[in-house]
């Protein structure tokens, strides 16, 4: 009989991996820009139970018909390693770089933030936006749309600041990343 809530070891599949250190890695994946390639990658993550924090993709080489995906995945080191190998196994995947593993890299994300308000709040929003070097890309008497670029942390901080000032919507791209220095990824 299955006794729920007791020690897991009574399961025929033994204990799970337990609480090992969870890491956050940025993977850069070069893929053929063909129908279904995003579905293959997403399906891999959902099918094997991997956790994804952010995924961006766009064509980067028209001549070769290739796209680059930037994936931020979280998991134990063993799981991250598996994710990389499983991605490499997909036929339209040409190359996987674990940027977190390989050294310094730059990560940038863009967010569009809509803030609605008047008087003091409106002025405060504009002032804060200046500090964050966010640009105003749309403006009405009672609203702004700011464009802010930076690391995910910076974008988070900006959003936190805008919430009390009347933020109504946010749209984020997710992170794009590239390695530092002259070496090609």
């Amino acid at each position: 009989m299955v006794v729920k809530g007791k020690k897991q070891s009574i399961s025929v599949y033994g204990d799970g991996p337990g609480d090992r250190a969870i890491e956050r890695h940025t993977l850069s994946v070069l893929v053929d820009n063909e129908p279904g390639v995003l579905a293959r990658v997403i399906g891999l993550f959902s099918g094997r139970g991997y956790n994804i924090e952010s995924l961006t993709v766009a064509e980067t080489n028209k001549e070769l018909n290739q796209s680059r995906m930037t994936i931020i995945a979280v998991g134990t080191p063993a799981v991250i390693d598996q994710i990389r190998h499983q991605l490499e196994r997909l036929v339209p995947v040409h190359r996987v770089n674990d940027l977190t593993e390989e050294g310094d890299h730059v990560e940038r994300e863009l967010a569009l933030v809509k803030v609605v308000g008047t008087d003091e709040k409106r002025i405060e929003a504009l002032r804060s936006a200046n500090i964050f070097r966010a640009r105003v890309v749309d403006s009405t008497q009672e609203s702004f749309v700011f464009e802010v670029t930076g690391s995910a942390d910076k974008v988070n901080a900006f959003i936190d600041l805008m919430i009390p000032l009347g933020m109504v919507n946010v749209s984020r791209t997710g992170s794009a990343a590239i390695s530092r220095g002259p070496d090609k990824m």
């Binding site: 820009n33 028209k62 001549e63 070769l64 018909n65 290739q66």
Partner: peptide, 8 residues
């Protein structure tokens, strides 16, 4: 869709 290079 195949790549332009492959197509050529």
């Amino acid at each position: 869709m195949i790549s332009a290079v492959k197509e050529k």
